[in-house]
Simulated assay, not measured.
Amino acid sequence: MHLSYCTNVHPAEDLDGVIRQLDAYAGPARVAAGLDVLGVGLWLPAPLAARLAAEPDALGRLRAALERNGLEVRTLNAFPHEAFHAEVVKLDVYRPDWTDPARLEFTVDAARVLAALLPPGAEGSISTLPLGWRVGWDDAKDRAATDALAALGAELRAIRAETGRVIRLAVEPEPGCVLDDVDDVVAWLASHRDRLDLDHLGVCLDTCHLAVSFADPAAAVAGIADAGIRVVKVQASAALHVERPGDADARRAVEAYAEDRYLHQVREHASAGVIRVDDLPEALDDLPAAAPWRVHFHVPLHLEPEAPLSSTTDVLRAALAAVREVQPVDQLHVDVETYTWSVLPGGPVDLVDGIAAELRWAQAELLERQEQPA
């Protein structure tokens, strides 16, 4: 398995900014984590991806910055299109969706950039949104999205033929979207098997989203494998767990995580089924709070929230173990995706120290421990 950290934690929108952030954060975090080489799951806003795909000199500047910092790229995050650190993001992160030609254009640009950056012999992955937000989705939009993903498959085959580079798209289920959970993604891909190239298209298993859905990790991964689909990428992330959301202390603690930039979908695991709301303030107002909650808030892997809250790193460990059981993992990309450092309760943190500590945790808990014989 190949470990990286996702650079969507950084707000840069242009090449100079991305290079500055590699120099200021990624390189120093590699050193602080004690790693000879650090993988970075690059987030490239759409205008920058287009520039890098079209301008060899610009791509050369990025490659040089990666090399001098001891960094390598095997995966890109092409879920946010741009402005991921705007004052308010919320539903904008799902735009443009897969019915908009801009989404296909962005993803093709990202694939061409990745093909040029991959280490020799490495395969690449690109994570993307699960079609779009569910509201207003209909059969016509589904057909348009299918057409776009079929066209992307043709582009990825062409890149493979031209460059010898294998790049796969990883569809990332997310609460509230058209493809809300792993079962939704598996069913959708399987039902469109006649149109889609499943050799170049698979699943991005975001383990925060998996935990929020209250899915059993082993069963979810088995369902992917049983359908003949591959886990292309794992986004190593943890959700916020609230065991007793009706308790006053728990409510005060979780209220601190309600913030204005990102959407924090919440699920309550009631006896009659999972109750779903689209953001934390709505949960605090409307959910019964009679059963455990999971909150879509990517909490740092190594920082267990203070009681009575907890995180779902157990789901992350179980999901990775399940993937190892059903497919080879020598080309599996494990991308630590904690983009919420700037909105964590308690104010600013030293980002280099935080990223390095999280990487050390991931190296020990996800790679070294998983590789030990039973």
Rank of each mutant, 00 (worst) to 15 (best):
L114D: 06
Q21R: 05
L129Q: 08
R143F: 01
R252S: 15
A190W: 10
E67K: 15
G346M: 00
Q327S: 13
L367T: 11
H200L: 14
F84A: 14
A272L: 09
R103Q: 09
W98V: 05
L117H: 04
L169I: 07
P348H: 02
L35Y: 08
G202P: 00
L263F: 10
D97R: 00
C204H: 08
V266T: 15
H85N: 03
A211D: 02
A150R: 11
T128F: 12
V88T: 14
A26P: 07
R369T: 13
V31K: 15
L198R: 06
R157A: 13
E255P: 01
Q235T: 00
P80G: 03
L351M: 13
A46N: 08
T163C: 10
V31Q: 09
P217H: 04
A318N: 14
A33R: 01
H10R: 11
V277T: 05
R51T: 12
I355L: 14
D285V: 01
R103C: 11
R160C: 09
G17R: 00
E268L: 00
A116P: 01
N69Q: 12
L35E: 06
R95M: 13
V178F: 15
V108F: 08
H296K: 05
D314E: 11
T312S: 13
P281T: 02
W293C: 12
A115Q: 10
I126K: 04
S191F: 01
G153M: 10
R360H: 14
A374W: 11
P292R: 11
G347C: 03
R369Y: 02
R51A: 12
I355K: 05
R244P: 03
L179E: 02
R230W: 02
A218D: 14
A32P: 00
V93M: 07
L42A: 05
A290N: 15
L196S: 12
L367K: 04
Q372A: 14
G41C: 14
G202E: 01
E172R: 07
L42Y: 07
D353S: 10
R61P: 04
A225W: 12
L196A: 02
E368N: 04
M1K: 00
H81M: 04
L332M: 03
P130N: 13
Q363G: 01
L344S: 09
I229L: 09
P308G: 14
L303T: 06
G39P: 03
V232C: 15
L344A: 00
H81G: 02
D285E: 15
L303M: 08
V166R: 15
L76P: 02
R30D: 09
T338K: 00
L131Q: 10
G223C: 14
D92R: 09
A78E: 01
D184R: 07
E337S: 12
T338Q: 05
A258P: 05
D226P: 02
R160D: 12
A50C: 06
L71A: 15
T107P: 09
H333Y: 01
Q363L: 06
C6N: 13
E337A: 03
P308R: 07
D57N: 05
V9C: 10
L71F: 07
E72S: 06
L22Y: 12
P80Y: 07
R360P: 00
T312Y: 00
P300Q: 13
A158L: 10
